[in-house]
Design a protein around this nucleic acid. Sequence first.
DNA 1: ATTCATGCAAATCGTTTGCAACCCA
DNA 2: TGGGTTGCAAACGATTTGCATGAAT
Lengths: 149, 149
Amino acid sequence: MNDMINNFETTLKENGYKLTVQRRVILNLLIEHEEKHLSTEEIYELVKKKYPQIGLATVYRTLMLFDKLGLIYKLDFDDGFSRYELNKREADHRHHHLICTQCGNVEEVREDLLDSIEEDILFKNGFLVKDHRVKFYGLCKHCRESTDE
Amino acid sequence: MNDMINNFETTLKENGYKLTVQRRVILNLLIEHEEKHLSTEEIYELVKKKYPQIGLATVYRTLMLFDKLGLIYKLDFDDGFSRYELNKREADHRHHHLICTQCGNVEEVREDLLDSIEEDILFKNGFLVKDHRVKFYGLCKHCRESTDE
DNA sequence: ATTCATGCAAATCGTTTGCAACCCA
DNA sequence: TGGGTTGCAAACGATTTGCATGAAT
């Protein structure tokens, strides 16, 4: 988490952006709730507790900036909201999302096995993969057990 | 393509929906442009050429219905538009999308290798995968060749 | 002092909805 | 006939933007 914050500060500076209270507060919130997949509105509500005078537009602009700088990832779980999660750069922390179509819960699963597919794509399509998004839709354990079929 | 249309007609009937001119026209358009990933607005513009009196809301409602019935898939390429592609049920036609972050072009790549990941997910997470979405971001062949790096 | 960032409110824009007229089954 | 469907226009709602003020470097 301190790594996260140092990285955040240097990334901002290197790119000519200023270190404002609002940006600090939002980053801290994202760290504090890193397991949550918060939506913009949820982040806004949480920020207001620590910094009541903040405007929604600032939250939108900040998240857009963090996303552009690669500090966070934008997620889309088809519920009409943009959601975000921290980009923890440690290589072994990338993951896919399992979205339960019954209860809407989202869990994470360690990712693997895509490297060979990506090599194949470069070889066959000449397309150089730099990132990917994988979503699995289905029934979570809880929903499978509490319904027939 | 005739399979497609027969399936469309029976699917509608089986679910108690009516076979209207508008729905026919939209389905035909999707078949005609199956390689295109058309957005709702693009579909609307195309439909108007054959059926000028159609309303945008009908296009939205029709696509929503087709999606619900599994006749089409909704796609999201992060450009602010909902896009759609036909669901060709043939098992060997599923594919992933390669999105070029430079020129925005989207190409398709035959999918494979996910089955073992999905088995693993069921085993480790108890989550039963029924569908998935995979997007690869990167540089297409053309963009790689026309720029340094 | 300069430049970027913020807060507010208004504007955007893709999408949804209410409703009377319509049309398939 | 009668219930799903359509077209129109109005409503929605997440996100963006213009602008004057304020803060960071």
